[in-house]
């Protein structure tokens, strides 16, 4: 039951993009096409779950016993950056097809604040290891859902007639605002 609440809350009620404002850069940047949106979501999911797993272990077995939790920010970002590099190298070797699909998105993920944000959040929320991983996977799904919805709308927007000054990013933000308003409808279901 606990897990179901975490999943629904992370995907709908506290959607990381539309409610918590994490990962806005890729949300605006790579959401022009549905295809790239799916690729990006896959890569984020992969890295986010791995990063949360690893940072949780580091937090409980290294930072806390040594009493250096104030080093959290520095350690976590280094771990995530090296993790991304490692995933890139391993994927290239093991599954070239998957690497082809996710490849170009991987370097971008280091500066995706959603990954670091979710890792820190799962520690702030006092989740245990399994809850943390479930939370990370669900957050990534929420990211994917928002990105997919948004990119589908943007593909339509290309064909719509929009005032000159509104074209491109401004209209994207207004659409995102309306999408966020729709997601507010989920408030209070868990």
């Amino acid at each position: 039951m606990e897990y179901i609440i975490i999943i629904i809350s992370a995907i709908f009620v506290n959607n990381i993009v539309l409610m918590k404002f994490l990962g806005i850069c890729p949300f605006i940047g790579v959401s022009n096409k549905v295809e790239t949106a799916i690729g990006m979501s896959g890569a984020v999911m992969f890295v986010m779950v791995l990063a949360t797993l690893v940072t949780y272990l580091i937090q409980t077995f290294v930072l806390e016993p040594l009493g250096i939790t104030f080093m959290q920010t520095i350690i976590f970002i280094l771990v995530i950056a090296s993790l991304v590099q490692m995933v890139e190298i391993v994927l290239k070797k093991i599954s070239p097809a998957l690497f082809q699909a996710l490849g170009i998105f991987l370097p971008l993920i280091t500066t995706n604040c959603a990954v670091l944000g979710v890792a820190i959040l799962s520690i702030q929320n006092d989740y245990n290891l399994i809850e943390g991983v479930v939370f990370a996977a669900a957050s990534a799904l929420g990211f994917g859902l928002a990105l997919l919805l948004f990119s589908s709308i943007r593909e339509q927007l290309d064909l719509a007639e929009i005032p000159e000054a509104m074209k491109g990013v401004p209209i994207a933000f207004i659409v995102a605002g309306l999408l966020a308003m729709a997601f507010m409808g989920f408030t209070g279901i868990v």
Partner: peptide, 15 residues
């Protein structure tokens, strides 16, 4: 709330 942030930023960029 969250939607207001997106909408206001959209209008400011438009301006």
């Amino acid at each position: 709330l969250a939607p207001g942030a997106f909408i206001v930023l959209g209008y400011l960029i438009m301006l």
